[in-house]
Design a binder for these strands. Structure first.
Lengths: 153, 153
DNA sequence: ACATTAATCTACCAAGTCGATAGACAAACA
DNA sequence: TGTTTGTCTATCGACTTGGTAGATTAATGT
């Protein structure tokens, strides 16, 4: 299960993607619209900025905005920053490899063999899905919902 | 990342799979051979038993053994028991669905759309891999390693 | 120069989880 | 009856999670 922190981060990024061409967005506005505790959101946005995903501007007219086009930011990148590596065990992580201390022979570890497959499957999806893709999928889901609604009217 | 508890559980299950036809195995032996803190392992084996994956026998000649054939126990089943649902968000869990409190409309939630794919990919692998499969993969990896070893001799 | 705005930094906190241990208890067996 | 072995309950320190408080710094408008 991903943490609330990660959910908040993803919500914020999707929000900022939707407002991509509208200049800096205030933390306060984001917090209010997405119902995220403001002070907590501050920390999240800051680490996203420190990891190159967001940029910010201080003072009047300031706020946060995406560091790159929504089509150039993936879910995988964002999740790794706030939640840590995707891999279920450190010994199959590409971004943050580490030896498992319980395990002596990595080559013949059954857990590792299976978890490698899991990691790869997750990475394929999350690194292959950009913020722009997510917006698109949301739009399609909303269209579909509207369609059903019309059907009932 | 999976917890140590889960790793210990999987190690124990793989161990018990290998000894499947040898009758009950002592907690002490398992703990010693797999280098798992004994008292901690007790709790793990107990919850695996309470969830129908293991069986046990008390007194002399007692110990723990698999409740079903290794070919009828999947990694997914075991992980759900000790670690909880596979799903990254509760609203896409099949085994333990729950509404996300941050989210009002499930149908159009972008996070959900992506995480559903992730859950399905994980479930496909973990529910499709039995303990017998794991043993087989370990054996193959060991054969391969021996081959390379022979090559160097 | 100065007030205002808004991000940034540091510290802190309560509650919960993780990994592990201790010891009493209960069933099986010889 | 005594020994063996699993079962249960309680407890522990360390760490993580989710969140708050307040001071500080940088940019902007007047």
């Amino acid at each position: 299960m991903i943490s609330k922190k990660t959910k908040y981060a993803l919500k914020a990024l999707i929000y900022l993607s939707r407002e991509y061409d509208k200049g800096p967005i205030l933390i306060s506005d984001l917090a209010r619209d997405e119902r995220i505790p403001k002070k907590f959101l501050e920390l999240i946005l800051l680490t996203l900025k420190n990891n190159g995903i967001l940029q910010s501007k201080k003072g009047k007219g300031g706020g946060y905005y995406l560091g790159r086009h929504p089509r150039d930011i993936t879910m995988g990148q964002a999740i790794r920053v706030v939640e840590g590596p995707l891999a279920p065990v450190p010994c199959v992580s590409e971004s943050a490899y580490a030896k498992c201390d319980e395990c002596d022979d990595e080559q013949t570890c059954g857990i590792r063999l299976v978890m490698k497959d899991v990691r790869d499957a997750m990475a394929k999806i999350l690194d292959g899905t950009t913020l722009a893709d997510v917006l698109e999928r949301i739009d399609k889901a909303e269209q579909k919902q509207k369609g059903v609604l019309n059907f009932y009217i």
